[in-house]
Design a protein around this nucleic acid. Structure first.
Lengths: 233, 233
DNA sequence: GAGCTTATGGAACATCATTCCATAAGTATG
DNA sequence: CATACTTATGGAATGATGTTCCATAAGCTC
């Protein structure tokens, strides 16, 4: 008795062998189609016409795979973004490129929160830093300026992704979703929540991308201002 | 045959009945002790001396539970934070209170990225908004100012949490972790990554909390600047 | 006490990431 | 060409998870 193991027809090495790159691309496709929960080793192996075990030859584990997928997209985004304007404009362009990537791949923002920083991310830091230098930002401000910009970029990305996925998970489109929240806000107690109430209308009509760019503008203005910041250097 | 169901000694209603609040507190304790992955319905039911099924009477599902845990902590943080300074100072205090909460509960930042916005979060928005009004920020800027601050606060929280958890997951303390990255940065190609290299030393010695406060200062300065921003209202 | 509601907790279920392993195709070596 | 060794492969098993189901019992209302 015992396990007969594999029947005869078994495996015979596949014509076009698997590759790490192939697996990453399939993972991205799966994530794009079905969201964060759509990526399972079973679904992935089915799509690639193999078994889950084979994937582990090319990929260490799921975290490794997701990290690689993030790197791939950030790298692609960086490669496709060229900078031709003023430093401030260029930083905005970089931020918007990341925003668009996270918008096109709604799982990306959330995944980046869990994934360790890898080399494509460093490339983004470097490019932003280069623009800061061109702007003539004082060296003492470099660290704070760069980290504030990055935290903002990925903070927005993460939250936008979360909102989008929440709406999608409840089977409603963005407009419905915003409409519901906006209505709820406008019905809040005027004494307790005057500010939130006053934002209800704006919520309904706002444009995430424009607001993102405006927020970058706010930070850039803070960076450019001549006031020196408290530093701990 | 078939299932004999429960033996006789069975259940007899527990002396102190379960409550949603009790479950939430136990969940927070579990998350604090063992991180994001430490919260399972099995561990939770064991700690509460019951079965997983009983928890579902008080809590809809895991998402509901995590959202409730987040709300509990944000609510507590808001309740414990009183504002007595200038509007700018107050906004900084609010941000730092959230930073400290996310620092004390490293899973919080990450969980907030997935959880839908609930009423304690609205309370935070309201308080920040009130300070913006006191500062005399133009109405047209309210939306951008508030959302930029919030995105920054939770963006930093999320990233800090991710870094901390990554370090912890690899069994290294913060100093080790930063040391490794700092060294890696300082060994990058000087032609390709001059900026990142120049930040290596700063990375080693930086203080997350001070940098967070400085970033808030940057944004507040941008908000206070008299230049009007492009709005889409 | 009868009947209904509120809990309770253990077992069962489906699904997941991951490991294991028998196996076969490639590749180098003689 | 034959023999070893490496590189892949893919299916089966493992263990843990969130969730559902259900028999049961305690409280409550009449």
């Amino acid at each position: 008795m015992a396990k007969k193991a594999n029947a005869m027809g078994k495996s015979s090495r596949r014509e076009e062998s698997l590759s790490r790159e192939q697996i990453i691309q399939a993972a991205i496709a799966l994530l794009d189609e079905n969201g964060e929960e759509g990526l399972t080793f079973r679904a992935l192996s089915e799509r690639l016409a193999t078994g889950p075990g084979a994937l582990y030859w090319h990929v260490a584990n799921k975290n490794d795979l997701i990290t690689a997928a993030c790197d791939d997209l950030i790298g692609k985004t960086m490669r496709e973004t060229s900078l031709t304007g003023t430093p401030q404009e260029n930083i905005r362009v970089l931020g918007l490129a990341m925003f668009d990537a996270m918008d096109a791949h709604p799982w990306l923002g959330s995944a980046l929160m869990h994934a360790p920083q890898q080399s494509p991310m460093l490339h983004l830091v470097e490019r932003i830093g280069h623009q800061l230098c061109t702007m003539g930002v004082a060296k003492a401000k470099h660290w704070v300026a760069a980290s504030t910009l990055l935290n903002y970029i990925f903070g927005v990305g993460g939250r936008n992704a979360a909102n989008g996925q929440y709406a999608r998970a409840n089977g409603r489109d963005r407009a419905d979703f915003l409409e519901t929240i906006s209505t709820a806000w406008s019905q809040l107690d005027p004494n307790e929540y005057p500010f939130v109430r006053s934002l209800a209308a704006r919520l309904r009509s706002h444009d995430d991308r424009k607001d993102f760019a405006a927020g970058m503008g706010l930070i850039l203005q803070g960076i450019s201002s001549t006031e020196s910041l408290e530093t701990n250097a």
